[in-house]
Design a protein around this nucleic acid. Structure first.
Lengths: 163, 163
DNA sequence: GATATTTATTCAAGTTTCTGTATAAAAAGA
DNA sequence: TCTTTTTATACAGAAACTTGAATAAATATC
């Protein structure tokens, strides 16, 4: 079960490393695989870029603009990639973001958003065609809104193939 | 990912075979590993007894009296082995079994019982110190009651080590 | 207690997985 | 377009997993 024993690097198995990656990319703003390699090294886990490439791929991490976004890998449930087809509009106001969706899909959209790691969202409320996102503060609302706008502008691309 | 290619045996991977085993032991009344080997063969999956031994072990299947009982392997949640310390008494009546438990533990007991595969239970209702089990018919009630009595008489033994 | 049955374990072979290196492919920038 | 940056992949060695045969250990039966 154990792997990766390197110079001073801790011995961690693949699953542990991948969980660490999920945590790192939701805490910091990581946008390149080298960045992830460095972040891992900071946690005393040394791996090659190729391994990070494969990890991101297996984890289903997406790159939105210049930033990785992680969904907990819940195979069988919809991921961030469905959002563009559901979201019609976005508006930030104070520490809130109002997401206008296709009729009847607000619940689904909220459900997906709730599960995106690294998104600064305190909570969501879904109506019929509207999701209200509450963020910690005004900047977070702008940030989330911008990020979602990127997602919907199809600036999204998978950070790897699917299995 | 593939394994086990034999004479006429189908090619199934370990996970598939183990799921099949769970299904077989909850459908039929299997009580020996040879029996499981035979049942698998009947499904066109040929393996050795040693493999069944390891499978039962990994699946956390228990042998109660002369019969295997399977819990869906939900690591972290209590299994059948906790029942003896919670159940104080059992009584079958018609198609019902009344389980008397330590105060406050009826919910936990019901939760475990709900997850035992191969137990002929239609549904459970838990109070404070009592669980009512509804079975399809009177014989099933007797059978379930007897089985649980065996469990509590510590006739239970693991069908294998734990990982 | 002796024998038979049932289950677990040791061993070895075959397979799969994991990962770094090196390199190719793709994307971004100039 | 040319260069640079970023990401993906072929390859190979190492480690881990899977499994059957043989056998030991445990349990049940007489």
């Amino acid at each position: 079960m154990e792997t990766t024993t390197s110079a001073s690097g801790a011995t961690v198995d693949k699953a542990t490393r991948q969980n660490l990656i999920l945590r790192l990319i939701s805490e910091r703003e990581l946008g390149t695989q080298q960045g992830v390699v460095a972040a891992l090294a900071g946690e005393n886990v040394e791996v090659a870029q190729a391994t990070v490439s494969r990890d991101l791929s297996e984890l289903g991490v997406l790159k939105v603009g210049s930033r990785y976004l992680a969904l907990p890998h819940d195979p069988g449930s919809a991921g961030i990639e469905v959002l563009p087809s559901f979201i019609l509009g976005l508006a930030a106001a104070q520490n809130q973001v109002v997401v206008h969706t296709r009729d009847g899909t607000a619940g689904a959209v909220a459900s997906v958003l709730d599960r995106v790691r690294g998104l600064k969202i305190v909570g969501t409320v879904a109506g019929q065609d509207t999701v209200l996102l509450i963020t910690p503060d005004n900047e977070a609302a702008e940030e989330v809104s911008g990020l979602l706008a990127d997602v919907c502008r199809a600036k999204t691309r998978p950070a790897g193939n699917v299995e």
